[in-house]
Design a binder for these strands. Structure first.
Lengths: 256, 256
DNA sequence: AAGTGGTCTAGACCACGTA
DNA sequence: ACGTGGTCTAGACCACTTC
C-alpha cells in the first residue's frame, strides 16, 4: 500500500469519526509533511484523494476544510402536478423553493437549436430538426443549484409565447394546457455522472461532486410535447417519488 | 491557464470530437511529453483531470484508453410491481436482467444489524434497534453492477424466513405478501455521490465514476415494512419512472 | 511579511504487462 | 528486456489570503 493512500485512509478515518467535523480546518501540507515525515507532494496526493471523494474542499491561501452538506429534496412525483391545484400558479421550481423558505432566482434564455439525437428521439422528431430551447440556470439564495433545459418541437412552439424570449408567468405547463396541449403523462429518466467543464462552471462545483441528471418527457394523449433535462448538483439535491398508496407514510408525517 | 489544464482541454476536445473513439488507446506519458515539450508530471496531471471526469481509464503496464459506456435501464415504477403478474415469479432483479438477455449472478448474505439513523427513521424504529439486513452484491454477466441492502424491522422478520440466511426463491416481496404484509405503496429517494472506498472495491469502480443511490421504503396500509438501499454504478445504470397516462409513448414503442 | 495552496520540473525507483 | 504507468522526493516559483 502506497504512502499517500495510507495517509488518505488515516485522514478519512479522522474525518468520518468526527475528529474533524464538517466545516473544520485541516492541517496544512507543510504541517502534515513534518508530522508524518513525508514530502509535500505525498501529502498533496493524499488530500487529492479525499477531494475527489467529495469529502474536503480547498481554497488557495486559506487551506482545506471538511465539506459540509445541505440537501434540498424535490418530490418529482408531485412536481408539475398533472392536476393543477387552485392556489398554485407560476412555475413549480419557484414554488418549491419558496415553500422551503428560501429565495429562488433564475437566469433565463431562449434559443432555437437543432435537436441533438438524444432529444430528437424523445420528442419524436428528426435529429437536427429545429427545436425551441428554453434554458434556466437556477439559484437558491445565491448558490447555483441546477440547470434546466426544455426542448419543444417547432410544430408546437411556432407562433406561441413558448418561442418568445420571455418568462411565462403562469408556468409553461399551464400555458401549454391553455393552448390545448394537456400533459397527461410523464416519462422520467435518471442517471448520474461527473460534470462537463461547462456544467462545472455553471454550477460552481469543484472535483468530487457528481451531477444528477433528470430527463422528463411530457406527453399529451397523442404525442410527446416537450423534453426537460435538469442537471442538479449532486451534493445539494435529492429527488423523491411516491408510488401507490402511502396513507401510512402521510400519517407518520402529519400526526393529528 | 495552467499548462496541464490546456493539455487536458486539448485531449478532451480530441476525445469528444471523435479523434479518439471509445476504446481507443491514448498516447503514452513519454510520447505526449515529447510532443508538447512538457515534463512527465504535467502530462500525468492532464490525464488525471480526464480520469476524474470519467472519460478515460488506465491500466498499469498497458496505457490509457477512452472509456466505452454501456447502460442498463431499470424501470423503477414497474420494478417490484405492486400487482404481481401471473408469469413473473422470483426476484425482480433476476427477471430484469434475464429479460435484457444477460446473465444475472449475486453474492448474498444476511446479518443482524443495529439500525443506522437513516434507516431507523424510514422504518419507524429506534436508532440502534436490531434489524435484519439482507445484502446482495449483484453482477450482470461478470461485471459488478450494484449492491442492494434491505433492512427489515425485527417485529416483522423474527421467526420468518426473512431472518434466515437463505435465498427466498419466490422473491421477498411475494413472500412478505404471503405473510400478510401486502406492500401497497413505495417511497423512493434518489441521490448521487462519489463511492466510499468500500463501495469502490465492491463495485470495482475507479476514480471519476459516481454512484446512483436509490432508497425505497415499502409500506403496507399501516406502516413501513422494509427499506431497500440500492447502490448503482453510475456509468452503467439509468432508472426510469412512468407517471400518469403514457398511451402515446407506448404507441410509439409498440407500433402495430 | 508570512503562510497557505497551485504549478512545473528532473530524477529515481518500483510494479505490471507484453513479447 | 522493454515500455507502460505508479510512487516518492527535492526544489523552485507563483497566486492568493491574512495580518
Amino acid at each position: 500500500m502506497s504512502l499517500y493512500r495510507k495517509l488518505a485512509d488515516d485522514l478519512r478515518e479522522q474525518i468520518v469519526s468526527g475528529d474533524f467535523p464538517p466545516g473544520s480546518e485541516l492541517p496544512s501540507e507543510a504541517q502534515l509533511g513534518r508530522q508524518f515525515d513525508v514530502g509535500r507532494d505525498t501529502v498533496r496526493r493524499a488530500y487529492d484523494v479525499l477531494t475527489h471523494e467529495g469529502l474536503i474542499e480547498t481554497s488557495q491561501g486559506r487551506g482545506r476544510r471538511v465539506r459540509s452538506h445541505e440537501v434540498f429534496v424535490l418530490d418529482a412525483s408531485r412536481h408539475e402536478n398533472l392536476q393543477f391545484s387552485e392556489e398554485e400558479s407560476g412555475d413549480s421550481y419557484s414554488n418549491e423553493v419558496r415553500h422551503a423558505g428560501r429565495r429562488p432566482h433564475q437566469e433565463f434564455r431562449v434559443e432555437l437549436q437543432p435537436a441533438p439525437a438524444t432529444i430528437a428521439s424523445r420528442l419524436g422528431v428528426q435529429t437536427g430538426e429545429t427545436t425551441v430551447l428554453r434554458f434556466c440556470l437556477r439559484y437558491v439564495d445565491t448558490v447555483p443549484w441546477s440547470t434546466q433545459a426544455t426542448h419543444y418541437p417547432m410544430w408546437l412552439a411556432d407562433g406561441t409565447r413558448i418561442a418568445e424570449p420571455h418568462d411565462i408567468e403562469e408556468g409553461t405547463t399551464r400555458y401549454l394546457a391553455e393552448l390545448g396541449f394537456d400533459q397527461v403523462g410523464y416519462h422520467d429518466e435518471l442517471s448520474c455522472r461527473m460534470p462537463t467543464p461547462d456544467e462545472a462552471r455553471d454550477l460552481e462545483v469543484g472535483p468530487g461532486i457528481p451531477v444528477l441528471v433528470w430527463v422528463r418527457t411530457g406527453y399529451t394523449a397523442d404525442r410527446a410535447v416537450r423534453c426537460t433535462t435538469t442537471i442538479f448538483r449532486g451534493d445539494l439535491n435529492r429527488l423523491t417519488y411516491d408510488i401507490g398508496d402511502l396513507q401510512a407514510r402521510q400519517a407518520r408525517d402529519d400526526p393529528r
